[in-house]
Design a protein around this nucleic acid. Structure first.
Length: 488
RNA sequence: CGGGAUGUAGCUCAGCUUGGUUAGAGCGCUCGCCUUGGGCGCGAGAGGUUCGCAGGUUCGAAUCCUGUCAUCCCGACCA
């Protein structure tokens, strides 16, 4: 059959072209690849096994790094008494519109409302106050893997749902400097997991005042760029100063015999990161999962002929070999035609397909097909001696990981623009051209004007590079560089 | 929360304007045959407690009216 015919066949009929409507494509992929299902509750999703597999990959990569940097996991309650929540004024005010409340228990009205945690600074802070006595108790380095709830107006799978999964780290330190270092350390971990594991290139930096976490002195984040030119905040890390310490009485006896308030931090990454993975890497055939994130790194599809068990036997033997080599492999023995299986696993984004048929066995080979390459693309399909399959797969997975990142990086870079005059800047912001990088004054009023006229806001800021003198948006003296973009 | 749209089989949808016998199609699913190197090989079959839910109009409602819930798009909001 000709390549021409293959081109014209709809590859995955359930999924519309990505470029036509990203939102429609995104939802189709989320549902058809069985990552999530809509739940019978408004704005909530069920994370299905395959989606949970992605989450587990992310979890294990992050968790390992948290442990390596001295953090321990713990668990704090879901409910927060209102009287505790209101103690940090800025914090409550910031979260008020998104908090869900429990007002009844059993058949009785509660005397005090209980907030379902939108984040846990409060409960954790209260406990830290109880546990912390001496500078010898510091630092406190705790993380928890939990669900949180925020009553959002508009929801989308992974990107924004009422209930979502995340991890939140909460630490307390003796000095501002240590707390600041912690915040940067965790931001670095987020950046490296996003880029090296999830394959999503990001810009890291500090949030502007208006984008800051309620109750924080400094908020840092990593920001990724989606194919439609909107930015996605993928993780945050906050310096909370002594704000929460003062509100919740987190203090200790210092070495110099004075009583001091601790310096606290918090940092989090949610399953939203998976939304970025889906949008950044996916194509018209569905998901493309970077190998390090893939619940299944390679799938073996046996090409079975009638009355021949030897192909099945060989496939099973290969499965055992590959598993033995430490690979996450699956053998697809479903009673479907091979083409069907091909498209199915492609839609699910499995990085490598191993085809094994009678001809291969006779020749002592297996056929490997990469998900990151187009059909017919150079290097997309390889015939490899059976004895070398495990080694070749390992190498190919690395190459696929690098290739997906390279593609995403090229997109980010080609969509990072540096307009030099005001009208061009506004135009680029309006048309969602990408990350619009300018010298910026840092003034809230300037940001508000840009937002009102273009819906773009600052994503992250960083120090000036030298040489810039004025803000491209308003002409005031430049104080920093900032990426502007419309965001999710 | 404002503006717009949509809810009929597991999925995608037709039927609704001009109410009226047993509510349809394709895909999927099940069973058999075929035997599988890129998706629609052949045949048979099941599946809607009756059209999101609740009221109303009517002799009669998937179809008209009201309300409600949910989803999608645009906007506002969004640690």
């Amino acid at each position: 059959m000709s390549d021409d015919k293959i081109e014209k066949t709809p590859l995955v009929k359930e999924i519309p072209p990505k470029a036509r409507d990203l939102s429609e494509w995104y939802q189709a992929v989320c549902y058809k690849a069985e990552l999530v299902s809509l739940a019978p509750v408004r704005g909530c999703v069920v994370l299905r096994p395959y989606g949970f597999g992605l989450w587990e990959r992310l979890q294990s990569e992050l968790d390992r790094r948290f442990k390596e940097t001295g953090h321990e996991n713990a668990y704090f309650p879901l409910l927060i008494p209102e009287s505790l929540l209101v103690r940090e004024a800025e914090h409550v005010e910031g979260f008020a519109p998104e908090v869900a409340w429990v007002t009844e228990g059993g058949n009785e009205k509660l005397t005090e409302r209980l907030a379902i945690r939108p984040t846990s600074e409060v409960v954790i802070g209260v406990m830290y106050a109880e546990w912390l006595q001496s500078y010898r108790d510091l630092p406190i380095l705790i993380n928890q893997w939990v669900n949180v709830m925020r009553w959002e107006k508009r929801t989308r799978p992974f990107l924004r749902t009422l209930e979502f999964l995340w991890q939140e780290g909460h630490t307390a330190h003796a000095t501002e400097r240590e707390a600041a270092e912690e915040v940067q350390r965790m931001l670095d971990i987020y950046r490296s997991v996003a880029q090296d594991i999830v394959g999503v290139p990001v810009y890291a930096g500090e949030k502007s005042e208006s984008e800051r976490f309620p109750g924080a002195n400094h908020t840092f984040s990593i920001e990724a760029l989606m194919p439609d030119g909107r930015a996605l905040q993928a993780a945050t890390s906050h310096e909370l100063g002594q704000n929460f310490a003062k509100a919740y009485d987190i203090k200790f006896a210092a070495e110099d015999q004075t009583v001091q308030y601790a310096w606290t931090t918090s940092w989090g990454m949610s399953w939203r990161m998976l939304g970025a993975l889906i949008m950044v890497h996916g194509d018209d055939r569905g998901l493309r999962i970077p190998p390090k994130m893939a619940p299944v790194e390679a799938v073996i599809v046996p090409i079975v002929r009638a009355g021949s068990d030897e192909v099945v036997a060989a496939a099973r033997a290969l499965l055992a070999t590959l598993k033995g080599a430490g690979l996450r492999v699956k053998l697809d023995e479903r009673d479907l035609r091979p083409g069907n299986k091909f498209s199915d696993w492609e839609m699910r984004g499995v990085p490598l397909r191993v085809e094994l048929g009678a001809k291969d066995i006779e020749a002592g080979v297996a056929t490997l097909v990469r998900r990151d390459k187009e059909k017919g693309e150079e290097g997309g399909k390889l015939v490899v001696p059976l004895a070398e399959v495990a080694a070749r797969i390992a190498a190919l997975l690395e190459d696929i990981q690098a290739n997906l990142y390279r593609e995403a990086r090229a997109f980010l870079e080609s969509h990072t623009l540096r307009p030099s005059d005001r009208s061009e800047f506004f135009e680029r912001c309006r048309e969602r051209a990408g990350m619009i990088d300018i010298p910026w004054c840092g003034l809230e009023s300037c940001e508000a004007i840009v937002k009102a006229e273009t819906s773009a806001t600052t994503r992250v800021t960083r120090p000036l590079e030298g040489g810039e003198s004025t803000c491209v948006a308003c002409g005031e003296p430049a104080a920093m560089r900032a990426f502007f973009a419309q965001s999710y």
